[in-house]
Simulated scan of single mutants.
Amino acid sequence: FKPIDYPKPDGVISFDRLTNVAFSFTNHEESQPCHLKLKDPTVPIRVNLPDYAEPAQRYCPAGVYEVVEDEAGPRFQINFQNCVHCKTCDIKDPSQNINWTTPQGGDGPNYPNM
């Protein structure tokens, strides 16, 4: 397929991912354990990256999942602090490898205008 070239966010009508995460007023205690767990930590790089170009980095609306390239090769990184608790990862992961659990203490998004 041909990748879609989307226009850059203009900061008026459209915004980048991290700005949208900021609008959710998400709050997670920095010392809490990650509430997004992988059943098999090797699957994102071993299976999903070659077969699907690791879709978690695209379907997550908050940019929680990244494939980071370093000297040892690609590695899968979970930035759970950005999670807006939409559970998209729990549904859309092609390998059904991500286990979404409730974070401790009721932390998460605080949508003030809802």
Results as ranks from 00 to 15, higher is better:
C89S: 01
A22D: 07
A56V: 07
A62Y: 00
P50Q: 12
P61I: 00
E30Q: 10
S95M: 13
R75G: 03
A56S: 15
T88P: 01
D16M: 06
T102C: 11
P44D: 13
P33A: 09
P103R: 04
C89Y: 00
P74S: 15
C89V: 03
N20C: 02
S14Y: 05
H35E: 14
C60F: 06
A53N: 14
D70K: 08
P9Y: 12
L38D: 01
Q77I: 14
F1Y: 10
D51P: 02
I4Q: 03
D5C: 13
Y52D: 10
P61H: 03
E30L: 12
T19I: 05
E71H: 10
P41Q: 06
N113D: 15
G63Q: 08
K87V: 14
T42D: 02
L49M: 10
L36P: 00
Y52I: 04
E30A: 09
P109A: 08
N113M: 15
T42M: 02
D70L: 13
R75K: 11
Q96H: 12
D90W: 08
M114R: 00
G106P: 04
C60D: 04
Y59H: 11
P61N: 05
P61D: 05
V21P: 00
G73L: 12
G106E: 14
K37D: 12
G105V: 14
K87E: 13
K87C: 08
D40W: 04
Y111T: 01
T101M: 03
D90I: 02
R58T: 15
F1Q: 10
G11Q: 07
K92L: 08
F1T: 08
D93I: 02
P9I: 09
A56M: 15
K2C: 13
R58L: 15
D93H: 02
